Amino acid sequence: MSKRRTAVDLFCGAGGLSAGLEMAGFTVLAGNDLFAAAGRTFEATHPNAKFFGEPIQDLKIDNLLRDTGLKKGELTVLVGGPPCQAYSVYNHQRGMHDERAQLFRQYLRVVEGLNPEWIVMENVAGIFSIAGGEAVHAIETELRALGYNVEYQIMRAEQYGVPQERRRVVFIGNRIGAPIRHPQPTHGPGLEPLVTIADAISDLPPLENGENPGCQNYPVEPKTEYQKALRGNAVEVSCHAAPRLGKVNVERLAHIPPGGSWRDIPFDLLPAGMKRAKRSDHTKRYGRMTWDGQACTILTKCDIHWGAYLHPEQDRAISVREAARLQSFPDSFQFVGSKTEQYVQVGNAVPPLLGKAIGLTLFELIAEAAEAEGAAA
């Protein structure tokens, strides 16, 4: 018997997790986010889903049910990643006192209101370090109080075909007594080779520092299966413009080889603050990518002062499109808003290929549960 598998995505941003679930075969019915530019991207890339552009505190369960055509208990999976700033290792004031750390309770409110069969919740690994794991314990305890068994695991994006070192904790649970497991890695030693930066972006047009050519034709045919898959039916490259770096930064970049960093910059060219830095500090600042490696975690700003966001060959920071490729977004995603807003949308997202792996595993678990139920009947 064929049954449509449905999903609703809270804190959906531009829709990376939704895109992955759709790749796996789910029908995404709705998304919710406060970020207006991300919402416009979500609407453009998920035309059959209803977008609720409001704080989750204002999201009405009755409206969700009405606009998705669902009854309570009918939704297959509710997914979401409450904003992670309160949990991030980059936020040195993180803690449960931060009101953003309470947003998972709003996720739980929607869980109670929709009563989905399955839940998926993701966040940064830093969530484990808050008050001795208080947030993780609260999530487990409150989901169990709502009737959900839940398990969590740290997933490494590069093990699922994403050309980026990215760690996320993923909670998976259900209220139907089905087994729970996380996706098995598909890439790494003994598996498919890790996807490299060259695999991801080597087909994109070259850019000068600060150049914004608008939409362009692809200069070459796709060189890898990854490029072919992400291009899909797209005929032009969009969102591919180089941030403009100042003259002194351009001078610094000329000294940084692939795999190099701020340590390769002559002392007299270093920013004043970095002249006082220990050689062991700021290890990824002014980092240049290597073609045969994976990207560092794509953040909400691909700022060369933050990490290794220099193009492997060209003396510039990576474009929004390159960041999106490194996150595994299809080229059909045209990010809406200012360039700053576009980088935020890309950096905040769950990599679609990671979402696809989760979605495929959910399909397997659902099928196994149905088979077991049939055998017991």
Rank of each mutant, 00 (worst) to 15 (best):
E211N: 10
N212M: 06
G214R: 13
C215F: 14
P219D: 03
V220E: 13
V220F: 06
V220R: 14
E221R: 13
P222D: 08
T224R: 14
T224E: 03
T224K: 14
E225L: 14
Y226F: 15
Y226R: 14
Y226M: 11
K228H: 08
G232I: 07
N233F: 05
A234G: 07
V235C: 00
S238R: 15
S238M: 00
C239W: 07
C239Y: 02
C239A: 13
H240S: 11
H240E: 05
A241W: 07
A242N: 09
R244A: 10
L245F: 11
L245I: 06
G246H: 15
N249H: 13
V250M: 05
E251Q: 12
E251G: 01
R252K: 14
L253H: 03
H255V: 04
H255M: 02
I256T: 04
P257A: 12
G260H: 12
S261T: 15
F267W: 03
L269I: 01
L269P: 02
P271Y: 02
A272F: 04
G273C: 04
M274L: 15
K275A: 07
K275H: 04
K278Y: 04
D281K: 12
H282W: 10
Y286T: 04
G287M: 01
R288E: 04
M289A: 05
W291T: 11
D292Y: 09
G293N: 14
G293M: 02
A295W: 01
A295V: 00
T297D: 03
T297Q: 14
I298H: 06
I298N: 07
L299G: 09
K301Q: 08
K301W: 00
C302N: 11
D303F: 14
A308E: 10
A308T: 13
Y309E: 04
Y309H: 07
P312K: 08
E313P: 07
E313C: 05
Q314Y: 09
R316C: 14
A317Q: 06
I318T: 12
S319I: 02
S319L: 09
S319G: 11
R321S: 13
E322F: 11
A324I: 00
L326N: 06
Q327S: 06
S328E: 03
D331K: 09
